[in-house]
């Protein structure tokens, strides 16, 4: 399997994602420069974390005009797996592949710490290997992770079980205390209607091997490999 990791000026988790998809997951992992619309025949795409274009204007707002994003939209429309992590999630919201927006954290501070998230949908290519309700300990590192959407969108996300990850306590309870950034309904990650595009603020790639303190996040990459093996292009 070939997994592409998009690189924008200002991406800084691209090598973490390449390492997780390549060395750890044992797949061919290639970097995709934002200025090219050539996806190099990859089977899945990861948009990594960082500060694309310095996060100027709004997080992800300038990245969405890069040539690679038009290719990504076609790639996603064909049902192929696309994962946005942190700034990648913000870019997916800005370019319209995912609904809603990510605002400044309610506490106004940049937060970098491990949190717990609960897998609330295993019906995506990035969570299918997880157990429903599985609790993952993964880090967050963001200043703008406060997810919001209008009431109709939220109702649709809930109804269709498109809230994939929620911030929770270590035992899986969804509480205000477990919510680090003020996200509505403790939302840490969602998917599109086709379920092949997933975005989340926490960093599974930074918690994909025991040496890093937690390997909980690797289930995201293990899920992807299983999903691709089950339905080759």
């Amino acid at each position: 399997m070939k997994i592409g990791v998009v690189v924008f000026p200002g991406s800084n988790c691209d090598h973490d994602a390449l390492h997780a998809a390549g060395a750890l997951a044992g797949q061919e992992a290639v970097a995709l420069w934002h200025d090219s619309s050539d996806l190099q025949g990859v089977d899945a795409v990861v948009i990594p974390g960082g500060f694309s274009f310095g996060d100027y204007l709004r997080t992800g707002a300038i990245a969405r005009f890069s040539p690679v994003v038009d290719s990504l939209k076609r790639f996603a429309a064909q049902g192929n797996p696309v994962l946005g992590i942190c700034n990648g999630f913000q870019i997916l919201c800005e370019c319209g592949l995912l609904p809603g927006a990510l605002m400044r954290n309610a506490g106004l501070r940049y937060i970098c710490k491990p949190v717990h998230i609960r897998v609330d949908s295993t019906d995506t290519p990035f969570t299918q290997a997880a157990v429903p309700g599985q609790i993952l300990r993964v880090p967050i590192a963001h200043g703008e992770g406060n997810y919001t959407a209008d009431a109709a969108t939220l109702a649709e996300l809930e109804r269709d079980h498109r809230i994939v990850f929620r911030y929770c306590t270590p035992t899986g309870a969804i509480t205000a205390e477990a919510n680090p950034n003020g996200s509505v309904a403790n939302i840490a990650g969602i998917c599109n209607a086709g379920r092949n595009v997933v975005g989340l603020m926490p960093h599974p790639e930074r918690a994909s091997e025991a040496m890093l303190g937690s390997a909980d996040g690797f289930v995201v990459f293990r899920s992807l490999i299983e999903a691709l093996a089950a339905s080759p292009r």
């Binding site: 204007l57 800005e94 609904p99 809603g100 927006a101 919001t148 209008d150």
Partner: peptide, 8 residues
Amino acid sequence: EVLTNPVI
């Protein structure tokens, strides 16, 4: 289309 995110 550019300067504003109409969601927020």
